[in-house]
Amino acid sequence: MLRYLTGRILGLLPTLLVIVTLSFLILRLAPGGPFDQEQGLSPQVRANLDRAYGLDQSLPVQYAHYLRGLLHGDFGPSLRQRDFTVRELIAQGLPVSLTLGLAALLLALAVGIPAGIAAALWQGRAPDHLLSGFAACALALPSFVVGPLLALVFALHLHWLPVAGWQHGMPRYLVLPAITLGLPMAAYLARLMRASLIETLRSAYVRSARARGLGAASVLWHHALPPALLPVVSYLGPAIAFVVTGSLVVESVFGLPGTGRYLVQGAIDRDYPLVLGMVVVYGTLTLVLNCLADLLYGALDPAVHHA
């Protein structure tokens, strides 16, 4: 098991390297530079700036330099927010973004899975239709509509929660953003869970378990549910992509100081180290989460080890 795990993790490194290399190339081959938008920069100053950040060197040299820094955990300086290194910027924003993403994911799991199970058990009846309708609407509304709507109702009118902002150690500020981000995920999970549970409930082994007279609860809990969870586990990988893009909107709507803005603003500003730093963080998260999902999958389906 331990050997398998280390093997898997070592296997991620080449993928990560490819991702960094690709991102580096795309970024640097794109026209434009980090200092284009600064007015009144004399060619002299520009050249100095370029030299200061090593941008005057050849691309392979810069690439090698970047990788060397990466090995020591050094993401380089931010080109636009001059007083900060990329590491500092990410260290500021990441806890906020991770907390938000985790809260949203947990919320989605806690709501989506039971809802999907209920819909499958009452298939074709009122609770099923109700949940399906609700899930469909949650999936159809962009979060930049849902977020302000929630803020309007629960903050401006009812005054239950703060409209926006962030204060450390105050979970109240997290409630509305987490709901906004988690809602479409919960809806997706509920649909996934419903479909796969209906499938396993029809299977021969569930019929066989019923023929043993084990009782409805035991048949559902021991026999039908674990395999039905497999698609949910597979969704964990793509979920991170959703959380990252989604948190971009949610952080901006609710004014949270997360990392979401770095990627967009960084790319527009050609803040190369900042964008690359985000790519490394994001890529690692995606790969590790996919890896975890695979492991969990193996635990739920014993046949996977041998296939």
Binding site: T15, I19, I26, A241, V275, M278, V279, G283, N290
Partner: peptide
């Protein structure tokens, strides 16, 4: 495909 999956596609589109 796996590699492209792990690449934040958002970033490509933005670029």
């Amino acid at each position: 495909v796996d590699v492209l999956y792990a690449l934040p596609y958002l970033f490509i589109v933005i670029i």
